[in-house]
Amino acid sequence: MRTLKPKHQRLVLVVVALIALLAAGLLAAYALRSQASYFYLPEQLLADPPEIGQPVRLGGMVEEGSLATDSDGVTMRFMVTGRENSRIPVRFSGIAPDLFVEGSGVVAEGRLASNGVFVADNLLAKHDENYVPRELQDMEQHQAAEMAEETTVGLE
């Protein structure tokens, strides 16, 4: 590079920087496609399940009366329900978030095990009035829509 004129050196620098950034971009695009964890509703998880062991998020309502704790005191099992009577069994070991109760919305981060149980590493529940996980904002609307559907059945 010693023989290059300053102008050419700048050109080389720009090209090198562009190549590196392009490489970063391509790598990012590739990795994002494979590493991003997709969000599933229970009915979607049943209709088109993700690969076993792939990290995904599952969002739905915690079914009333389904919450049970194993004898070790730290493993919880419950059902997450969605539309069309879809139900997914979920297992979670850990300390549940404070506002995690039956009948409320939840987003579970984890993966589907081969026996059809969703193994959650982490649960996200409503934090407070101001902070609702994005996925749960719609959940309440969709729940409301479902309620409306049920109550209007047969009225027409």
Binding site: L21, A28, S37, P55
Partner: peptide, 28 residues
């Protein structure tokens, strides 16, 4: 550093991008 910046920026904006196509993802 610029490449790392690009990677962090793309990872942060990706969920917004896919949401435009009604696909929800989280990047971690």
């Amino acid at each position: 550093l610029s490449a790392i910046l690009a990677i962090v920026l793309l990872g942060t904006l990706y969920p917004l991008l896919t949401e435009a196509f009604n696909v929800r993802v989280s990047v971690g």
